[in-house]
Design a protein around this nucleic acid. Sequence first.
DNA 1: CTTTATTGATTGAACGTTCAATAAAGAAAT
DNA 2: ATTTCTTTATTGAACGTTCAATCAATAAAG
Lengths: 196, 196
Amino acid sequence: MEPIRRQQLIKATMAAIDEVGLADATVMRIARHAGVSAGIISHYFGGKDGLLEGTMRQILSDLGAAVAARRNALKTTSPRAHIGAIIDGNFDSSQVTGPVAKTWLAFWASSMHRPTLARLQNVNDRRLYANLCHQFRRLMPRHEARACARALAALIDGLWLRGALTPEGLDSDEARRLAHDYLDRLLDTHDTLSAT
Amino acid sequence: MEPIRRQQLIKATMAAIDEVGLADATVMRIARHAGVSAGIISHYFGGKDGLLEGTMRQILSDLGAAVAARRNALKTTSPRAHIGAIIDGNFDSSQVTGPVAKTWLAFWASSMHRPTLARLQNVNDRRLYANLCHQFRRLMPRHEARACARALAALIDGLWLRGALTPEGLDSDEARRLAHDYLDRLLDTHDTLSAT
DNA sequence: CTTTATTGATTGAACGTTCAATAAAGAAAT
DNA sequence: ATTTCTTTATTGAACGTTCAATCAATAAAG
């Protein structure tokens, strides 16, 4: 029963945040979405904070899984292909849909002042950056590789951000296209950045 | 007295949000930052919502002014220079400092579910996009120009976002460098994107 | 019969707003 | 200049609301 309820409540949390935002996502509203009573949340998550942490963990782990799956499916070890897989994983359809994207952004903003969420967000952030950096490193000096990794990560985040804010949601195909195009430009002429 | 207090309270709002986040920025805490009593807020802004709206207006207007100032200072009409000025304006030091950046991101996130803030954010967003698009349009077909504008806007937002979240704050020099480099790449070989 | 699952009313804390009271500042009149 | 009147500025306590957490009671399961 426990794993069922936990999953149910996490899903309900995303639905509630998608509906009214993190600030108005009360335990009662979340519980109603899940079709249970409010007390259950404290029973399975120890309180509202535990539920929010569990929800963020779920999102981050799904995101990591989407990236890992695409990278494992590659037949090649080429850096370009791996970075492309990272891009595609970050725009995986399961991550880009309304509720998940809005919850993600809400957590992102509130992680500025919640140490627990900040830690989770940081781990995920470093993973993306380290992965990108490692692949770029195979094609250019460290300094350039770092700059490329930071820039591509920023573009990915920016596309996410704008996608979460527009009413129509993110056009994941166009986002992928723009990110891949940027990658192509970075790899074609990767000397320009060193002009510091 | 009124303009003094309004300015004072807006500044205190940013300080409070920087300190504890939007969720915990209570009227009492804001008032304490400004050295006044809580009732004053309702007196000058009609309530907490009015104060938040006023604060976001201030940030957006400052940002717009920073961009406009740099563009007006240009001696040339070259698209590249204008886009460069837009980039520099968006990373103006007055906008990038801790309190402003964090407040900006907090509003951004909460604008998903607050119609008033969403309207303000939308106006600003469209302005940035339209400005970029118009300049790119002078150098390439409409379809490409739109793609470039969306991508550059996303990169700018992404750099902002990451800057607001890292404890050290945004390195505005590096952010400008990355954005300018991207711009150079877009203008150097602006045919790649049309391969749709 | 014991453990687990679930409810929903209750509790206490925190918040935004209101408002009567007070202080300060000008304006008008003597 | 002094007094009186009016307006504006400001306070802080009181009020009503909302929320998360608690817990005794109940139901279901093993």
